[in-house]
Amino acid sequence: MEKVSKKITKKEVEHIAWLAKIELTEDEKNLFTEQFNSILEYFQVIDEVATDKVLPSFHAVDLTGVLREDIVEPSLSREKALANASKKDKGFFKSPKIF
């Protein structure tokens, strides 16, 4: 496979940061764009591996999935559930407005 140099642009960094919900300063955008390019360039080493017939390993060891019986167990008290909330109001978590 021919090695094509992949470059991430500042605009892409901006978009990805928006997806990840992380606000970045101008300086950070510039720094990250530069750092990401050197890191991604390093990651490109895996491009040389032929993987056409290889299955992905999501887990590396053999695991057996199990399901749980549909039996109720006690929940947290409301007080405990809300204890760490930034803002709460009459038994509700108070979240910023959505529009």
Binding site: T51, L55, P56, A60
Partner: peptide
């Protein structure tokens, strides 16, 4: 996905 395949190897 590529990384997961290399992981297999």
């Amino acid at each position: 996905l590529k990384a997961l395949k290399v992981r297999t190897l």
